[in-house]
Structure formats: structure tokens, C-alpha cells
């Protein structure tokens, strides 16, 4: 599904290398987790894959189902099936959540040459999916993320994911700022979307989220590279011993 080869990335504005040769393959139907200490480049990887400005790719490639992502605009990557659940979802005053969702769904459909969803059909689907994430009608009417609590913002991210039905979902520290109940709700939302044709890349600091979203593969990232790859037990090792041992081991 997603194949990253020797990806090198630096900041556009300063001479600072962030990613120093990332290699990663995520197969369809699988959940991969990336863990790592602060500043290891996890969030940068998610931004670069989704097309955020401010970064310069100095080498390597990243393909989604064989198609190079790095040449595309952010909206083209989305239409190709990539989705990033933001660590800090952006507030957009003046744009209704519902309008936003419908615009996004139809823009992607249009880009793929599919028929747009009618207002009635859209409303039916969104209500159903919102209900399972405990998002009420009021939240759908409000401007995007404005005045939402931390938990509401993350649930709103998952709702967008459910509506857009992407192939490759990247979750950037979706557990940050969530209490236990909210995390469970979000994890349930993610688990409901697990499917054979869909893959997940879950970026997190903590093992806790991975109790709820069970990964197939766990990667440890440090200093701009994947330094170790293993099964779910690797996350437990981090939880118990911290990163120091692993980093010392690969150094």
C-alpha cells in the first residue's frame, strides 16, 4: 500500500535535516505503529506524506499503490486515498462542519471522476457515522473544530476519515490530550474502519493507544530513521523500559 524508500527531508527555511533515510512498507489491511522519542521526525513524516509546505524532500520516494505521492498537491494525495488525522486539528471559524465534510467528500469524488453525493444521501450517511462516534447534530452545525473540546476534535477527525473512506490512514498522536474514555471511543472508531483494502500508520508516544488499536508491526523511529522494527511486543518494551535501551542497542 504505502512504500517509503530512503526518504530524506530538510526544513525549507533552514539547513536542518529532519528525515535521514526513512524506509517503511505498510501492507494493505495492516496496522503499523511508529513510536519514538520527541524530535525523532514522526510528525514530520506524516506532514511530508500528506503534502504540507515548509519541507524540502532532498532524496527518496514515497508511493501509494505504486504512485509517487511526493509529486502531488495535498488535495491530489487525499483524492488518491491518503488521510492524515491531525495531532492538532485546525479550527476554521465561519465554515460549518457539515459544509466542510460535504465539500471534501464531493471534491474527492469529483477528482476521481465519480458522481457527487446528493445532499440527502450525504446527510443520511453522515448522521449514521456521527452517531457511532457520539457526535451530535449540534457539533455538525458548528464551525469546524471551533470551541470543540480535545476529545471532540479527535472524534471529528475520525468522522472525516469515516466519510472520506481513505485507503491509507495516518494517525498523528491521535491519543494526545484524550482521557481514557475518549481514547476508547476514538479507537473504536478506528477499529470499525479496519478493512482488507485499508492500511493504518499510527504515530504515538505511548503504548496505551496500542492497547486499543492493536498493531501488526511496530517501528521505532529515532533521529530521522526507523531504527528498529518488531511485533506488538516492541511497544510493550518501550512502555516498560523507555527508549534508552533500544537506542543504545542500535547505536
Amino acid at each position: 500500500m504505502l512504500e517509503i524508500k530512503d526518504l530524506h527531508v530538510k526544513l525549507e527555511e533552514e539547513d536542518k535535516q529532519i528525515l535521514k533515510g526513512v524506509n517503511l512498507t505498510v501492507e494493505a489491511g495492516k496496522v503499523h505503529a511508529i513510536m519514538g522519542p520527541n524530535g525523532s521526525g514522526k510528525s514530520t513524516l506524516s506532514y511530508v506524506l500528506s503534502g504540507k509546505g515548509g519541507y524540502e524532500v532532498t532524496g527518496g520516494s514515497a508511493t501509494l499503490e505504486g504512485v509517487e505521492l511526493l509529486d502531488m498537491e495535498a488535495e491530489e494525495r487525499a483524492a488518491a486515498g491518503l488521510f492524515l488525522a491531525f495531532q492538532y486539528p485546525v479550527e476554521i471559524p465561519g465554515v460549518g462542519n457539515m459544509t466542510f465534510l460535504r465539500t471534501a467528500v464531493n471534491a474527492q469524488r469529483k477528482a476521481r471522476g465519480e458522481a457527487e453525493m446528493s445532499a440527502g444521501e450525504f446527510l443520511k450517511v453522515v448522521r449514521e457515522k456521527a452517531k457511532s462516534l457520539k457526535i451530535d447534530a449540534e457539533m455538525l452545525k458548528r464551525p469546524v473544530n471551533v470551541g470543540f473540546s480535545g476529545g471532540e476534535k479527535k472524534r471529528n477527525e475520525i468522522l472525516q476519515m469515516a466519510m472520506l473512506e481513505p485507503k491509507m490512514c495516518i494517525l498523528d498522536e491521535t491519543d494526545s490530550g484524550l482521557d481514557v474514555d475518549a481514547m476508547k471511543l476514538v479507537a473504536d472508531g478506528v477499529n470499525a474502519l479496519r478493512a482488507d483494502g485499508r492500511a493504518f500508520l499510527v504515530i504515538t508516544h505511548y503504548q496505551r493507544l496500542l492497547d486499543h488499536i492493536k498493531p501488526d508491526v511496530v517501528h521505532i523511529m529515532a533521529d530521522g530513521r526507523i531504527v528498529k522494527t518488531g511485533g506488538p511486543e516492541l511497544a510493550l518494551e518501550v512502555e516498560n523500559n523507555g527508549y534508552a535501551d533500544i537506542l543504545a542497542e542500535v547505536a
Binding site: 495535498a74 476554521i92 465539500t103 467528500v105 477528482a111 472525516q160
Partner: peptide, 8 residues
């Protein structure tokens, strides 16, 4: 960017 990342 948020809007573009959703395909708009």
C-alpha cells in the same frame, strides 16, 4: 492545508 489535506 487542513482543507487541502481533505481533498479540497
Amino acid at each position: 492545508f487542513y482543507l487541502q489535506s481533505r481533498g479540497v
